[in-house]
Amino acid sequence: MLSLERVSKIYPNGVHALGGVSLEVELGEIVAVIGGSGCGKSTLLRAISGLDPASEGAVVLDGERITAPHEKIGIIFQEPRLLPWLKVADNVGFGLGDRPKPERAQRVTAALARVGLADKAAVWPRELSGGQAQRVAIARALVPRPEVLLLDEPFSALDAFTRSDLQDHLLDLWTDAKPTLVLVTHDVDEAIVLADRVMVMCPRPGRIFDEIDVKLPRPRDRQSAAFDFVKRRVLVALDRSLNRPATTVDGETKATAGAALWW
């Protein structure tokens, strides 16, 4: 189990980015963290990853305190961040440096086949499209079989079609080993398609403002009424988190918050 105990982050320049975030995530659970820009959601993810440890409070995974990158935790960034001097297969196997070569090759081949890029093994990263590169990045993060996979707005740089394609693909991959997923996003649809729970954060300092359970069966229909219902709840919470009263017309909540996310 992953638990955050009053995690705070104050940068050396005095910016109070996180103000005591507490959260418990079960093994295999998918949690989406959403919020306006500057609400500390990326800071939170980096604190969990150990890349930028918390200034106060603790991140604990299976009873072990995380203060530096840990082998049980994988991370996927907004950009693929593939190493341009390694072929795709070597990029995927990057985190397996300590394993014997045959095992490494076998696991890399399996992972590439799993993300549908078996034919790209011997290709340079520059020859991939944006969506393909991000799939390679996902394979690279999953190959060491992490218990927790952190995703920092992983699909926000992709076009809408590729994005929803990769969201479905991520869920499909998740069913293999069911790692815990913590996903930071500013896309409400993405949060609801993927997550069991949506945490809405509010800024200055970053805190968890609201928590919305998504009890919809998977795969989720983005067009269904139930989906829409959850979406409105999240949007209202977002509006409130930014101190922006949701306007109601004829007893219906107007979804104005979508645009606000980009500010």
């Binding site: 890349l51 990158p69 440096g97 060491p144």
Partner: peptide, 12 residues
């Protein structure tokens, strides 16, 4: 620095 961070995430 983003690539260096990849190295850190994989505990090089």
């Amino acid at each position: 620095r983003k690539l260096v961070e990849v190295g850190r995430a994989f505990r090089l």
